[in-house]
């Protein structure tokens, strides 16, 4: 029992430290904008966070950046949004996992006069004053154009996508597939599989696809994890140079693969820009300035030739 008391005391002390910390946070009377993201541990989200922090510094506001551990945890995101609203922020930025599920809370925000900014992906609602996002359909269509060019406008290609439920997954898959179907009738998409963005799972999927389709000429990985899976499969099966690999986003492994020629090139979004524009838009909304309904944060094709160019380099993350 003595020891139990000691533990209780430890908890109290720990709690007091937290209080101090909390007190410090509360002490500042500055504009506060919480960003509720879809995730926080992927490099992509870290880059978004970086952009948000850059804007926070520039406009002299406080931000927090939070997201659930996996992109399926719709309810966790709602809890985060709820907690963020409890803090009575001046504005809130949200990358919704399920745009319908968050609507009751967005209405709560609206009722409280808190402007909502969408980032990365939109919400099926009029409440967000603006959304800062990549046009994923157009970006994946660009990947399809590059693929067609690199394989000589004919042959078999396959696709690995991170998932079939999220907006980005659907948009990138459809953007790629529809462009191929419409513009390149001699190219056949032989398989589309979903690896959850998991490197290992995507690797296994890609290997199975390559085994099943010996004439495969091109492979598109629709996000970082999927693309790395494809690279791994091509390396493990000694197919380097025989299959044209196109990726999405960046990260150390993809960048290295492009430099070594294992990957032909990739589409990069502008994650830093997404975070930056979200916070900037929030600040403008607080000031009552007018904003466009959509802020296109842009996307680019990059390969060996322009990977170090001043236009591309700042958009890539390790």
């Amino acid at each position: 029992m003595k020891k139990a008391t000691a533990i209780l005391a430890t908890v109290v002390i720990l709690a007091l430290i937290l209080t101090l910390f909390g007190g410090m946070v509360q002490a500042k009377e500055r504009i506060y904008i919480p960003l509720i993201s879809k995730g926080f541990q992927h490099q992509f989200w870290q880059a978004v966070k970086l952009g948000a922090e850059k804007a926070a510094k520039e406009f002299d506001v406080d931000i927090t950046f939070e997201g659930p551990e996996s992109e399926s945890q719709v309810d966790k995101q709602i809890d985060m949004l709820q907690a963020a609203l409890s803090k009575k922020p001046k504005a809130i930025a949200l990358a919704a996992l399920d745009s319908k599920a968050v609507i009751p809370l967005l209405e709560q925000a609206k009722a409280a006069g808190i402007p909502v900014i969408g980032f990365d992906s939109g919400v099926d609602s009029d409440i967000p004053v603006t959304t800062a996002a990549t046009n994923n359909v157009a970006a994946a269509a660009l990947a399809a154009d590059k693929m067609a060019e690199l394989i000589g406008y004919q042959g078999e290609v396959a696709v690995i996508v991170h998932d079939q439920t999220s907006r980005t997954g659907i948009d990138r898959r459809d953007g790629f597939v529809n462009r191929i179907k419409q513009k390149y009738p001699k190219i056949k998409i032989v398989d589309i599989q979903y690896g959850g963005g998991d490197h290992l799972k995507s690797t296994d999927l890609a290997k199975a696809i390559i085994m099943a389709h010996p004439n495969l000429k091109g492979f598109f990985g629709a996000n970082e994890g999927s693309a790395i899976g494809v690279i791994n499969a091509v390396t493990e099966m000694n197919m380097k140079g025989k299959i044209v690999v196109i990726g999405y986003d960046s990260g150390k492994q993809q960048i290295a693969a492009i430099r070594s020629g294992l990957m032909a090139g990739a589409i990069t979004q502008n994650p830093i820009g997404i975070g930056y524009e979200a916070v900037k838009a929030a600040v403008m909304a607080i000031k009552g300035q007018k904003l466009p309904k959509v802020i296109d944060t842009g996307f680019f094709w990059y390969d060996k030739t322009n990977i170090d160019s001043p236009q591309i380099k700042p958009l890539l993350y390790d």
Binding site: A15, G22, D79, S86, K87
Partner: peptide, 29 residues
């Protein structure tokens, strides 16, 4: 007791913690 301590501490640390809406949020979560 730990639960109570946590509750008191968070309430002291932030005026927004012990608000009705937030408590409801915790219960729902």
């Amino acid at each position: 007791a730990s639960l109570i301590v946590m509750f008191v501490v968070f309430s002291l640390a932030s005026p927004n913690f012990a608000k009705f809406n937030n408590i409801i949020g915790i219960l729902l979560a």
